[in-house]
Amino acid sequence: MNTVATQFLDARGLNCPLPILRTKKALNGMAAGETLSILSTDPGSVKDMQAFCKQTRNELVASNANAGEFEFFIRKA
């Protein structure tokens, strides 16, 4: 699966709902089909990103967790 991101967002250290708000803002400035990579440390962001993508119909291409950090790849619809 192609998970090469064209935009990056560092949301580490931020708590609910900031990772989602920053993600939305980053996606606003992107073209359809482009992929955004997000780094977060908020455990709540795992479920929130899924819900956010489902609602906004952007595709959550991949989601990884390692050592207290969460990485998401979202392809803009």
Binding site: C16, P17, I20, L21, T23, K24, F52, Q55, T56
Partner: peptide
């Protein structure tokens, strides 16, 4: 403010 900003992020 959390609910309003998040809802707007959801469109």
């Amino acid at each position: 403010f959390i609910l309003a900003s998040t809802a707007s992020a959801l469109g």
